[in-house]
Design a protein around this nucleic acid. Structure first.
Lengths: 344, 344
DNA sequence: GACTTTAATGCAAACGTTTGTGCTTCTGTC
DNA sequence: GACAGAAGCACAAACGTTTGCATTAAAGTC
């Protein structure tokens, strides 16, 4: 029913190859015929058939984007930015949710591989070995993870964590806890490493807690663990955990920031509502950058790849910023006594 | 490089059509050869080429999902559910964001139409005329909008609004304000209509305000409008507006629920954090139902459509529930004096 | 045992593009 | 005015499937 290239050719009295070139290589066709073809195509409502084009060129002008959980408020801004950037380059994007399941993640990459030009993996949960293997089959760019041989977009959490610890130290906190996320998380390792270094540099004591699940329940669970340490300052794996922690502490009668100061990571919208101090990560910039890298990577894979493409594939580090709100304040003057349960 | 149907055929000493049928119509091929083909295909890592398949069948096993703004916390649960339901039926889904722009929305449907089996429009902003026109070109299912001839998934906001008004009336509120959203919004019209009816039934006075933009700023703007009425209870277009309103009121020293009771719509995660009473809408159920309807609709469009498909295309109404939290309470005993600015 | 039915497979056209090759026609050069 | 080069276009093969039709072999019918 929809008009094909053949219909346009017939209506123009010209061969199909001429019509094809009018769209794919306009400079090879006489300007006069070109405009005639374009006019007829417009009038017939002709749209090139993507499937046919993909079949012969091997290119789909589609991208895949895989996240562990769309409802995690961290991801939507990234998805939005990626999708919009892709559209700017005439690409559409498949979005898939793995439900935090690495096996699903892997299978999703496999089934998507054949029908996209490349895949964006946001905070992938897969083991490194699988990731490397998949990267051989289809162009991949990862966000929030560093794997040898796979181009990545990364957040400079090291300086973020340093700023956070400095902020707490400046407020007089002597004991600080780090509430860790999943052990496999690159973000978690990065944060912890930097926090340890920064605490050492400032001569304050860092208590490493966790791992806790990176959700609200994890924050609730972490609350009691925190109270068993002498920490008056806390850096949590992410904002969701921090908010769970915050509510849990306040419910238990602990004043924030009166008795405990709290810092999260990501600056999700909820963080602003509860006035949480946090390390803001530029998720939208990450989404855009990742799409650009992926398109360059895909282009490089096809032809030899232009030098410009090659250059665009270098890992990219994005700056983070400490957003100070009302969940952090001066350390309490009298050292708080740990409320460790003293039962039998 | 990837194995084709021809490779499998050669390796099996069988014709390509037999291999093809092994996958698309297994019952037409001898069980013995079938298992042989499957084994070889497995071993060669054969995956059917979607583009080639789409080219000849016209089916893509892809769906499109279009929302106004992915970062609006209302949508991610719906996207997640839709995506997961689609995957259950071996479909992938393109997700696109229109940036609240009806023109983009329309163009997106057009460009997506050719490469999907159907499109899901979530709370579309487009004018009805365009919507109807597009529905001729590609199977469409809409969520949160009722358009003649287009299958829809709708929330029973009428009973939700009635419950909300009843709740306020039961608490003794005599004056209630409805803070309206965009005039074009179906949801807005539905809520207002039901609120008016319910207020009449309970003999309380309803003050219609707005339209306000359906975001945080809209809530802030609505705050002063509310305070110019004698209302002690408020039903807002959605939770985001309600939260903006809530913060704005409290900042101005108005106690919620002490002086004003507040009810939102949607039950987004933030609503729980700020303890907002709200009308919960089953967005994940909506996502799943919409995908089922869309697949049925697409199937019906292809063949004559089985009776089962036809039945599945009827509009579906989903129940809402009033979630009572701490933003609503008894009406203040002394009637609050409107704080209308009395300047010149 | 000649017949029809059924099951299983092969054959080849078709889907809508892209693209390498070859045929004209034109322009410019000496 | 013969010739090289270029510009513009047509021709046809190819991409990897699906599917109606033809063919063969096996099974059932009288």
């Amino acid at each position: 029913m929809p008009a094909t290239i053949r219909d346009v050719a017939r209506a123009c009295g010209v061969h199909v190859s001429t019509v094809s070139r009018t769209f794919s290589a306009p400079n090879l066709v006489n300007p006069e015929t070109r405009s005639r073809v374009l006019a007829v195509a417009e009038q017939l409502g002709y749209r090139p058939n993507k499937a046919a084009r993909a079949l012969i060129t091997g290119r789909t002008t589609n991208l895949g984007l895989i996240v562990a959980d769309i409802t995690n408020p961290y991801f939507p801004p990234m998805i939005k930015a990626a999708q919009s950037q892709a559209r700017l380059h005439d690409h559409h994007v498949f979005v898939a949710d793995t439900d935090e399941n690495p096996a699903v993640e892997e299978e999703l990459v496999r089934t998507l591989a054949a029908q996209v030009d490349g895949i964006l993996l946001c905070s992938p949960r897969m083991v490194t070995r699988s990731l490397s293997a998949l990267a051989q089959e289809v162009p991949i760019v990862v966000v929030n993870r560093s794997v040898d041989g796979i181009p990545a977009v990364l957040m400079d959490l090291a300086s973020g964590a340093r700023n956070a610890i400095d902020h707490l130290a400046d407020l007089g906190h002597q004991h600080v806890a780090y509430v860790g996320g999943p052990a496999v998380s690159w973000t978690n390792r990065e944060l912890r490493r930097a926090a340890v270094a920064a605490a050492k540099a400032r001569g304050i004591r860092l208590h490493l807690l966790g791992p806790f699940p990176p959700n609200h329940a994890g924050g609730v669970a972490a609350a009691s663990a925190v109270r068993e340490t002498p920490a008056t300052g806390v850096l949590a794996f992410n904002d969701i955990v921090a908010i769970g922690l915050l509510e849990s502490l306040r419910e238990a009668g602990v004043s924030v920031p009166g008795q405990i100061s709290l810092i999260g990571v990501d600056d999700i919208p909820q963080a602003e509502i509860v006035r949480l101090t946090t390390i803001a990560t530029p998720t939208d910039t990450a989404g855009r950058a990742a799409v650009d890298m992926l398109l360059a990577r895909a282009a490089a894979g096809r032809r030899g790849g232009t030098p410009a493409d090659q250059a665009a594939i270098a890992d990219q580090w994005l700056p983070t910023t400490l957003v100070v709100r009302e969940s952090t304040g001066p350390a309490p003057s009298t050292k708080r006594v740990p409320t460790a349960r003293t039962g039998s």
